[in-house]
Design a protein around this nucleic acid. Structure first.
Lengths: 393, 393
DNA sequence: CAACTTTTGTGTTGCAATAAATCAAAAGTG
DNA sequence: CACTTTTGATTTATTGCAACACAAAAGTTG
């Protein structure tokens, strides 16, 4: 047998997509011959990229041994940086967070301070595992290919900062992605949703779009900005001012900061979005009324989004998502009222189950995508230092 | 030399993408060896898929011979069916319409009548060229994989009709695509725009979305329906009724039928959208006022679209596009006023230069995509009946 | 429980596609 | 007109893949 390292990537991709597979499964799915499949599996196995799973059921003959991606072969370091804090996590190669930590730090403190804290947290979290990739999520537009933030509206001091370079010491691929986009991937991929919108409702309102199974980033990485589209409100003649400088944005009516503003105006003191959610859960009449109203404004915006993009699912995450049906009922009401029947027929609108892990999970998946891409898989194989399977026995 | 038919597709794809290439160009772009490139080029050449172009400039040594896709090797039959008529065209393999004809026929007459007329027109247009593919554009949601219309709002009698089967006699691949989508491809592909929105302004308002270089069809093929999103109008308390049954849609304010309605109400008699455009060109004050107003309503909707999708270009086509700046100025005004600076920085908004050919050009491109896809290229090669290049000389 | 069937796992051989190397041809250059 | 440069054609070697054969590990059956 000669050196068989080429094209192992496509077989590895099958395991990433399908999970557990027997040799025969791989043969059927890939269309490759038994010899070739065995060679490649041997190659992947000796590199530790796949592992044998017990419990092969017999279907009348010899039971098959089943293989799966060896998720513990190495780890991916991820950090989902938000406006006021970050979640850092060590994830396995399948995207599952193994250990994590949350910290409070303002993005306005600039990249040195924030990335310093992120780096320290990741070092703290990391055990003796090999690190194969790093994924950083940021709350701003990203030039994905270059791995940096460009013209961010809120991330002062981050413009074109070399985030990839900051983690160069690890000597592994570093990907930088918008936080809403990474959430969207985390929601879409495991359930094989090819057309999905992820809404993040926190202090502000953002969204991540996955269509045709890919992230829609737009031409400048600025796509998904639903928060600053026009709100549909009866009093359109006197639109409320938004923090973006414009007036009448959805965020100015349904964003977390707008709810705080309105509660204060109604004489209810709240310091942050979490307290708004608490009040709603306690049944505070004013808070519930405002959140319901916000749901309807948001619903009108989402209805347009549904008409334009025709997603199969809308997943809501962020702090306000904890309001559950108080918020969602208004969204559903408007969406099913306004969007075309065809677009809503198979549409599901629900709250994310991933919680604070959504960001880091998505980042791990995106990082793994890069790591195991056909372009880079050979490079990875090389760096494993495994002697290639050789002709000499 | 042995049979070399496999993987010619990837080399052919290079010619489709880059146009004219020398052997050395192909070697550099593909990373293949000289022998392999020569084999594949010989294979493609003998099948007539590429042709030699004269005029190889010398750069100090022997001048290179240049090759390009042989666009005249066969033709693609295309028909862009609109609500009240169709454009049928014979296109070359590069997507250029060679001969065409327009006919008036209502889609409401049903598929048998319309496709009958389309088929007759195509037969009339076809010379002695080989036909390699057929592309049909329709004004409704399409289940692309199945090649049929599903749950169309306006195409009565077309639901799930087997359009592919209608053209089965030709024995070639048939693709069915939404008309706005095919236009978008025609605008995007030749200029290598990966993130583009095509707006079609006729009696109604539709749009085609190309992002990441792919058509966004949505989960039911219903994406792009910007005409029935909410209009931003001061008098939001009394929204105008739309023909879709809802109220306050963009189309109810800026659609061709709405302009006719408003002109009639103002005492100006018009029969169709073409007459509205004529009045605008003649400088009719009322018509110009209404079209300007429509531009602003449309602009507000487009501004939201820009915030959400961050395209690099918006191309306007359809009958109303002939109003040029009278319409576009309002669109630009609102877009640059409302959308985030980052999203508008490199945004171009312009009128399509393709005119009535946009639909059929896009259809030809999409059909060629299918025809030359890696899945189907071998099949095509087989059917050419060309004896494969053999070892015997 | 032993013979048979079925399916999986392993090793060998041959083939076909690609790459490397060599040589010939067609230009420009001084 | 020799020399250089680049392209084009041909031969040879390599390597990845598939087909085949056989061994192993189960279930099945009399």
């Amino acid at each position: 047998m000669k050196d068989v390292r080429t094209h192992v990537g496509e077989v590895l991709a099958l395991f990433r997509e399908h999970g557990e597979l027997s040799r025969t499964d791989v043969i059927e799915i890939s269309g490759l011959s038994r010899s070739t499949v065995n060679q490649r599996l041997a190659s992947l196995h000796s590199a530790g990229l796949i592992e044998e799973i017990g419990g092969g059921e017999s279907t009348g003959g010899r039971p098959s041994s089943r293989f799966a991606l060896n998720r513990r072969r190495a780890v991916l370091l991820t950090a989902d940086i938000g406006a006021t804090g970050f979640v850092a996590a060590v994830c396995d190669l399948g995207g599952t967070p193994l250990r994590h930590v949350s910290e409070l730090v303002d993005v306005w403190d600039g990249p040195h301070r924030v990335l310093g804290a992120v780096g320290a947290a990741l070092t703290e979290l990391l055990g003796d595992e090999e690190v194969w990739g790093i994924g950083i999520g940021v709350p701003g537009p990203v030039e994905f290919a270059a791995g940096r933030v460009v013209n961010p509206p809120i991330m002062t001091g981050w413009d074109r900062f070399d985030i990839v370079g900051w983690f160069a010491d690890y000597g592994v691929p570093v990907v930088v992605e918008n936080d809403a986009n990474s959430r969207a991937v985390a929601e879409a991929r495991p359930h094989r949703h090819d057309n999905l919108i992820s809404l993040k409702l926190g202090t502000g309102i953002g969204s991540g779009l996955v269509f045709n199974g890919q992230i829609i980033r737009g031409s400048e990485g600025a796509a998904g900005d639903i928060g600053h589209t026009r709100a549909a409100v009866p009093d359109a003649a006197n639109p409320l001012p938004c923090r973006c400088g414009n007036v009448g944005c959805v965020e100015a009516y349904a964003g977390g900061w707008a709810l705080i503003r309105d509660l204060e105006a109604a004489g209810v003191h709240v310091d942050n979005v979490a307290e708004v959610v608490s009040l709603v859960k306690l049944g505070n009449i004013e808070a519930v009324r405002l959140v319901r109203q916000a749901g309807r404004v948001l619903g009108d915006a989402v209805a347009d989004l549904v008409s334009i993009l025709n997603p199969e699912m809308i997943v809501v995450s962020g702090q306000l998502a904890d309001c559950d049906e108080v918020l969602l009922s208004g969204v559903r009401e408007r969406v099913y009222q306004r969007s075309q029947p065809l677009a809503t027929r198979n549409l599901a609108i629900r709250v994310s189950q991933l919680g604070e892990f959504a960001g880091v999970t998505g980042l791990a998946l995106i990082t793994a995508d890069q790591l195991f891409s056909t372009d880079r898989i050979d490079e990875l194989f090389e760096s494993l230092g495994e002697p290639p399977v050789s002709a000499v026995q």
